[in-house]
Simulated assay, not measured.
Amino acid sequence: MVAVTPILWLTTIILLSFVRGSSSARRFDRRSDLDYIPPINASAAAGWAVPLQGSNTCDPHKACTDSLSPPPSGKPLQYLAIARGLYMYLCPGGGPREVAKFQSQSTQLYDAAPLIQNLPNEEAFHALPAKLHDFDYEQLKNSTLECLGTIGTVNDTAIVTLFDIATFEALPYESVLPPDDPGSNGRWTHSVSPKRDWDIYRVEVAGGTPPICDNTQFMAEEEYTAEYWFFYSGGEDLWTPNNIKREELVDPKDMPAFI
């Protein structure tokens, strides 16, 4: 993992003073020297490639794989975000062998452009989610990072809202175990919008794994940080009915609604 110098970490910490919870404001106060930075800027990551290589994953009735499939050719990167979020799980309390059930997610997406220009290379960017997972954002003030959207759960479906751009369902397509510490870090995922205009990758995940259940019924909040890569081919792809059957995309038992 690439080391980040103290100066760069100070810059990153200032930029990444997130506000926890789903009620985060769309725009936070920005220092005047950051006003020239566009709120959404995928060009800052020109030449970068979304990480795809995870760990070996074997799902029932499917072949084993250790990598997500690459973005479709001709579908460029539009938005790159660092995310801070919560997954809600329910332990049913039926015994220690019961599996925690996903309930909902609340995720804030922050434009990565201000971070990219202050980091030495792509590897340093990929190292950020793990470093930032345990950071106490609530102790910092004067956030300077732009919140470009959110991910929530409606009727057991992930809904992506990119402010003033689009709102659409995101349906799980494939996933792999993370390359490091799968017991603590969530899977890497590739999701798609119903009309396949959007491809969304959640990678470099830190945290977010389901709790270990016992005989007690309880709800658990699991925090996570991750990179989100949004590839887009054009079209509105708003939250409208579609002809794609969800079972054609993923086995619901294999991967619930969170992305």
Rank of each mutant, 00 (worst) to 15 (best):
I165V: 15
T153W: 03
A113E: 09
P129R: 04
G152M: 04
L109M: 14
N142R: 09
R187L: 02
V176P: 04
N121D: 15
A124E: 04
N155R: 10
D180G: 03
I159W: 01
K141Y: 06
P182F: 10
Q117G: 07
F102L: 13
P129H: 13
P120N: 06
L119S: 06
F168M: 09
R187W: 07
N142V: 08
Q117F: 08
K131W: 04
G186K: 08
N118G: 05
D181V: 10
F125R: 07
E138T: 15
S175V: 03
A127D: 10
I165E: 11
L177K: 13
E174L: 07
T150V: 13
T144H: 05
A124K: 00
D180F: 15
W188D: 02
S175H: 09
Y137H: 15
L109V: 04
R187K: 06
K131H: 08
S193K: 11
V192G: 07
Y173F: 15
H133Q: 15
L148P: 06
S191G: 13
S184Q: 14
D134G: 15
P178L: 11
P129F: 12
I116E: 01
A166E: 09
F102Q: 05
S143L: 13
E122F: 10
R187P: 00
L115Y: 01
S184P: 01
F168V: 04
K131P: 01
A113P: 01
W188Y: 03
A130C: 12
E123G: 11
A130H: 12
E169T: 13
S193E: 11
A124C: 13
T167C: 06
Y137C: 10
L171P: 01
D180Q: 14
H190R: 13
A112M: 01
F125T: 05
H133C: 08
A127F: 07
D164N: 14
P114Y: 03
I151A: 06
A158C: 04
L119T: 04
P120Q: 11
T153D: 07
P172C: 12
S193I: 01
T157C: 08
S193F: 10
P172L: 08
T189Y: 00
A127K: 06
P179G: 02
S184F: 13
P114H: 02
P114N: 03
R187V: 12
D156M: 13
S175P: 01
T144S: 12
Y173T: 05
A166D: 03
S106F: 04
T150C: 01
S193P: 07
I116L: 12
V176D: 05
D164V: 07
L171I: 15
P178K: 10
L115T: 01
E122V: 11
L140R: 11
T153H: 02
E138N: 13
V192I: 15
L115A: 01
L148D: 02
D136M: 10
L109I: 15
T107P: 02
